[in-house]
């Protein structure tokens, strides 16, 4: 079970700020495939991975990173702080 968080337009497109997901995905990319297959709103949000960033347990990671031991996955657009 992992907690998935969505921010900014990813949150708006999916329509949820967070959800718990039962998954056996080995990597972030595998998890994205599972989410895409769920519903159109997920497919739309994850259509272009180059427009997305991912954090695993609150550290930035790559889409090929392993989910082994990860409790929290967050998807969001490139950050615009400052």
């Amino acid at each position: 079970m992992v907690e998935i968080l969505y921010f900014a337009w990813v949150r708006e497109r999916i329509g949820l700020p967070r959800e718990q997901v039962e998954t056996n995905a080995a990597t972030v990319a595998d998890l994205v495939e599972e989410l895409r297959a769920r519903e159109e709103r997920y497919a739309a949000a994850f259509a272009d991975l180059s427009a997305l960033r991912v954090a695993l347990d609150q550290d930035l990671a790559d889409f090929d990173a392993s989910l082994d031991g990860v409790r929290e996955v967050a998807f969001f657009p490139p950050m615009t702080g400052g």
């Binding site: 969001f76 657009p77 490139p78 950050m79 615009t80 702080g81 400052g82």
Partner: peptide
């Protein structure tokens, strides 16, 4: 801060 801190402006 601009591109590594998780803030998003609307």
């Amino acid at each position: 801060l601009k591109s590594r801190a998780p803030f998003w402006k609307k």
